[in-house]
Nucleic acid binder design. Structure first.
Length: 423
RNA sequence: GGAGAGAUGGGUGAGUGGCUUAAACCAACAGUUUGCUAAACUGUCGUACGGGAUUACUGUACCGGGGGUUCGAAUCCCCCUCUCUCCGCCA
């Protein structure tokens, strides 16, 4: 969430920034201003009341000690009167505070000045494109046919065991998953990221920390007996490592990477977009997370983008990098780059990574801070990205590398798969 | 799952209703002293939200979380969470 400072320091600027995301925030910001003033006035009043309660109560003890019972009794009564008033004030203050928070959380993060204007995915800007789009013969087929032909991924078996969207990887298909995960992790570790293996279930507080709760509750699987949620991405446990943490400024930039399965209910998805590996309820992903000093977070973002680009390039996949426009960005992001790889047999681009700088938007909710050079507490910046999500990478690899006598494994993966062809 | 014991600042740890403005020690930071290192001494040493000339200064809240009793709660009561020990179950 935004800080009250960010909103009130320059209200016109805030309104202008939010309009880039297609949000007309004027009315909300005016309401925030009013509620914040109200909150401050109430707190001042309540604090004064409490201060007199404290000092009178202290006198009561002294008066009793001196044997002045009547005066003590009178003082006692005056505190009781103050208490009643305080109860009412407290009630009002709580109301004002929660009304204020309720307004603030409706506002998305400010998009950075770099964000292009636009409303839909069509307005995203291609910043780079690389690799060659292969020309496949007439016999080329989409990955859902290939995986059946080579018996490497069994969707029907997954349906039997669990349900749609829970594939079973078999033989060389399973080995390919393991190879990709290990390869991605090795790339990230080589780039200075520390590997972590977090829990795959998180508690409610963690869900709130990264903003999955309360808004996206329906997107997570919920183990109700223990009130745990299956993680939709490693971002949730890894970023929550920093919840309520004051980091030592000398630690910046903090770089973590984690492989986890990801679980998403994907309620409401249907059609050809979800065919095969395009959209699953359980899939594998390697994530990178950074916590950075605010002044350095955009350099960090650039570093993450070129790092991910290097990995995609090493796999020999045709790719492009998009800078998302205001209307297509997530609620929490300040600047996002999406990576897409070209799926030759489907004839479409598939999103395989999303790399974002959240500036202080997540950190504010997480209370992730550090002590600045002036000794004052400041919010850190958080960033994350996929590096990479497996299913669509696998889809593109299978489709683009298919030949009449098997599917070619990219050079860089062969030390991990220990075979050079799926057949 | 059962029984018991606990949770106090960055750390150790005292504090069983007002004398606590949370002691003391350690760590950290600044200064003094000093050939160097070390030591000693002095001082500083939380977070959040308010008031204020946005300096100084000052108010309130916070002793795992939430409620309650009381003029007054770290301290008494209730609920919850977590940790430790023992038992049970278990890869």
């Amino acid at each position: 969430m935004l800080t009250i400072r960010q909103i009130r320091d320059n209200e016109e600027y805030a309104i202008e920034r939010l309009s880039v995301k297609g949000v007309d925030a004027r009315a909300t910001i005016e309401a925030i201003e009013e509620l914040d003033d109200r909150r401050k006035a109430l707190q001042t009043k309540l604090d004064k009341n409490l201060a007199s309660q404290n000092s009178i109560s202290k006198q009561v003890g002294a008066l009793f000690a001196q044997g002045k019972k009547e005066e003590a009794g009178a003082a006692r009564e005056s505190v009781s009167a103050l208490k009643e008033e305080a109860r009412a004030l407290e009630e009002e203050l709580k109301e004002a505070e929660s009304a204020l928070t309720a307004q603030i959380v409706t506002l998305p993060n400010f998009p950075s000045v770099e964000v292009p204007a636009g409303r839909t995915a069509g307005d995203n800007v291609v910043v780079r494109q690389g690799g060659d789009i292969p020309v496949l013969g007439d016999s080329a087929v989409p990955h859902w046919d290939l995986v059946a032909r080579y018996d490497i991924i069994d969707f029907e078996l997954g349906v039997k065991l669990t349900g749609a969207g829970f594939p079973v990887y078999k033989g060389q298909g399973a080995a390919l998953q393991r190879a990709l995960i290990t390869y991605f992790l090795d790339c990230n570790i080589a780039a200075g990221y520390t590997e972590v293996m977090p829990p795959l279930m998180v508690n409610e507080a963690s869900g709130f920390g990264t903003g999955q709760l309360p808004d996206k509750e329906g997107q997570m699987y919920h183990a109700t007996d223990d009130n745990f949620y299956l993680i939709p991405t490693a971002e949730v446990p890894v970023t929550n490592i920093f919840r309520d943490v004051i980091v030592d400024a000398s630690q910046f930039p903090i770089k973590y990477t984690a492989y986890t399965p990801c679980f998403r209910r994907e309620a409401g998805s249907y059609g050809k977009d979800v065919r095969g590996l395009n959209r699953l309820h359980q899939f594998d992903k390697v994530e990178i997370v950074q916590v950075a000093r605010p002044e350095e977070s955009y350099d960090a973002l650039e570093g993450m983008v070129s790092h991910v680009e290097g990995i995609v390039r090493s796999l020999g996949l045709p790719y492009r990098i998009l800078k998302l426009c205001g209307g297509d960005m997530s609620f929490t992001s300040a600047l996002t780059f999406d990576f897409e790889v070209y799926s030759a047999a489907q004839g479409r681009w598939l999103e395989v990574s999303s790399v974002s700088n959240f500036e202080s938007f997540q950190a504010n909710r997480l209370k992730l801070r550090f002590k600045g050079d002036d000794g004052k507490m400041r919010l850190a910046h958080t960033l994350n990205g996929s590096s990479l999500a497996l299913p669509r990478i696998v889809a593109a690899l299978l489709e683009n590398n298919q030949t009449p006598d098997g599917i070619i494994i990219p050079e860089v993966l062969r030390p991990y798969t220990r075979f050079d062809k799926i057949k």
